[in-house]
Simulated assay, not measured.
Amino acid sequence: MDQILNALKALGEPTRMRVMALCAQGDLTVSELVHILGQSQPRVSRHLKLLCEAGLLQRLREGSWVFHRLAAEPDHMPFVKKLVDLIPQDDEILLRDRERLQEVKRERAEKASQYFSRNAMRWAEIRALHVDDGEVEKALLKLVKPKGNEDFLDIGTGTGQILQVFGNHIHQGWGIDLSSDMLSIARANLEANGNHNCAVRQGDMYQVPFSAESFDLITIHQVLHYADEPVRAVAEAARVLRQGGKLAIVDFAPHEEETLRVDHQHRRLGFSEKELADICRECGLEIKEVQHLPGDPLTVTLWVAVKL
């Protein structure tokens, strides 16, 4: 009873209601909320503190950044979502907030797009600075255990490297990526490698251009740390995954390498086992296997989840 009353009291203020409506659209930093709300940083921080104390929001600290999102604990999620559903989406102030939120998201996307275009030819070299790709690829194949008859999708395929790794172990494969520069390289690599059962097309991880339950196996390889909304990206992967199918996520464990955010447009500085487990559970997936590949300074983690 006390928990519900505290949550209702916290939400019973216009700015905090606006914050909840915004955080329902994805993870946001204090500075982004300050820009959208047009209020001072101390005032916004105070509202966020009250919402977190009431169990409506959770804080995720990554280096010098702190993200805020709707509470994702199983006991809180249904209640929090019901409260968010009560917020009038056609309110004039909330509509303006969403417009500013879209501006923030466009700016993020433009920065990421510019980065990918500048570094398309150097992409493999840049990734090699952070992790031994060959070791990761061998571990990924061993964990997933493809049988040779799967329809396969690689989300955020980049240069098409994962398609090449899986090409001889699947029935057919697709890769999607937003960057036309990356796709040009991927097509050339697949042709040179003789992966004629694989193809690529332009597509958004948030709007995968395939119908529901189209694939037996999906990979999201070193992509999720760029995602504005990792939950939404995983949910979209789950949508096109067949029941009993596998989703393999490869990304960094939590770290403090701020240079990856500043120089390479990483939105997130890694993911913990618990956070990925919570995300997958929310999307109708269950993590079956986890493997860590320690590095210096970065550790790569592999998660394999099954659609329930």
Results as ranks from 00 to 15, higher is better:
Met1Tyr: 12
Pro14Phe: 09
Gly26Gln: 08
Gly26His: 07
His35Gln: 13
Pro42Ile: 09
Pro42Thr: 04
Val44Glu: 01
Leu48Gly: 00
Lys49Ser: 12
Leu51Pro: 02
Leu60Thr: 10
Phe67Ala: 07
Arg69Pro: 00
Asp75Gln: 15
Pro78Asp: 07
Val84Gly: 01
Glu92Asn: 06
Leu94Ile: 06
Leu94Glu: 04
Arg98Phe: 11
Leu101Asn: 00
Gln102His: 10
Arg106Ile: 03
Glu107Asn: 13
Glu107Asp: 14
Phe116Gln: 11
Glu125Ile: 05
Glu125Met: 09
Arg127Phe: 10
Arg127Cys: 11
Lys145Arg: 14
Phe152His: 03
Gly160Tyr: 02
Gln161Thr: 11
Ile162Glu: 09
Gln164Pro: 02
His171Trp: 06
Gln172Lys: 11
Trp174Glu: 12
Met182Thr: 03
Asn189Gly: 04
Asn193Ser: 15
Asn195Val: 09
Cys198Phe: 05
Cys198Thr: 07
Val200Ile: 14
Gln202Glu: 13
Met205Leu: 14
Ile218Trp: 07
Ile218Leu: 14
His221Arg: 14
Tyr226Trp: 15
Tyr226Gln: 10
Pro230Gly: 05
Ala237Thr: 02
Gly245Val: 04
Gly245Ala: 14
Leu247Asp: 01
Ala248Asp: 02
Val250Phe: 07
Asp251Tyr: 02
Glu256Met: 15
Leu260Ser: 01
Val262Pro: 01
Phe271Cys: 10
Glu275Pro: 04
Asp278Trp: 07
Ile279Val: 15
Glu282Gly: 05
Leu285Ala: 03
Gln291Val: 15
Pro297Val: 04
Thr299Phe: 11
Lys307Ala: 07
